[in-house]
Simulated assay, not measured.
Amino acid sequence: NSMGKFNGHFYPGLYLYSYGLYQTIVISKAIIFNDSLLYPSCPSRNKGRWAMLWKISYGGVLKMATGSILTAYVVICLDDGMVLMSKQVPPRFMYPKEWQHLTMFILLTLLGCVDVISKNLLPQRCVVLEKSTLVLTFYVLLLLLVSHIQASVGVELQVHSLLILVVFLLMLVLTAELWAPNMFHLRLIETFLFLMMGSWLMQAGFILYKPVTGYPWQDDDMSDIIFVTTFFCWHIMINASCQLGIYGFSSFWYRCFCPGVKLTVSKEAPYHASPLRPLYKLLQEVEPSEKDDQALLLPTSSP
């Protein structure tokens, strides 16, 4: 039914957009205080009987809960349940797009499980495991989306093609983060793409299933297809402005209303370094032997 398909686009998009907004706030704070992205500083909360609650991976728990709820929703929306194959001869696969949605939501649940295992169950957090699982999830998501549009035409094809573009760029950025997980530039781009993916999914629900005018978009009208791309460009400008606005407001808030805030580096961090250290400082650290050789050439009477 159209209502089920609308919710299947709108609520996942709302979740992704909320996640992007939250990550924008986190990254803005990290940039303002020159903090680590992987091991953010936080006030000391390791005392008292509720100390363990502060260490729970709430992001992982939220992913598990959201994935499980959306998985159950897909199953409930079908009157006869998630039937894989029909009983006719020869048997045929049933509900191909619903099974793809189910696979996507199961991946989100597994992603949350990995976050909880890495941050709460392993002796030491494994960032590589978290990032690798996230990258693998988007590789699978891209494959599912490419096959998802095989029978699409017109407006639906254009909507999903633009979504595939966002997922492809996000996959590239997440892959690059495997080698640079603490780089602010990549995290900003990643967050922007999550905002784009979320807002465009919500827009897709309205375009395909609940148009604002009350009349369906026309596949044979070229102006409708062109305006799909125009709306997408508006999303780019709005989300970029949203990121800039959150950073500007955060900077204003912390510097004007919290001037005495002093963050302490998290003890879990194996190191804490500025992401943009000058090259000459790095050279000074990795080549101390050259200074020693020069000192040996000086006369002993030299000051």
Rank of each mutant, 00 (worst) to 15 (best):
A204N: 01
R125H: 02
E290H: 14
I226P: 01
F105L: 00
F257T: 10
P275R: 06
M237C: 14
M104N: 03
C233I: 14
A176L: 15
R49S: 14
I106Q: 09
L279Q: 10
Y15C: 04
G154M: 14
L129R: 01
L145K: 08
L38I: 10
K262M: 11
E98H: 10
Y39A: 07
D115S: 12
Q150R: 10
V146C: 13
C42D: 07
F10T: 04
L162P: 00
S41T: 09
M237D: 08
S147L: 10
S2T: 07
L163M: 08
V135I: 11
A180T: 14
Y39W: 15
V114Y: 01
F93L: 07
E98M: 05
V116K: 08
I25F: 15
M94Q: 15
M104I: 14
T175E: 13
W217G: 00
L188V: 09
C42E: 04
D292W: 02
V74K: 05
I246P: 01
I106C: 05
L84V: 09
E156L: 10
S147V: 15
A176K: 08
K55F: 00
G48R: 05
A295N: 11
Y95C: 03
V83D: 10
L296A: 10
S86G: 15
F192L: 11
V155S: 00
S18R: 12
K267M: 04
F249S: 13
G260H: 12
M183T: 09
Y17E: 02
V212P: 05
T300I: 13
W234L: 08
V114T: 14
G20N: 09
K281F: 11
P91R: 07
K47Y: 09
Y95I: 02
F252S: 09
Y271V: 09
V212M: 13
L279Y: 15
R45Q: 08
G248T: 12
M3L: 13
P123G: 08
T103P: 02
A72K: 06
T230L: 12
M202H: 11
H148P: 01
T137C: 15
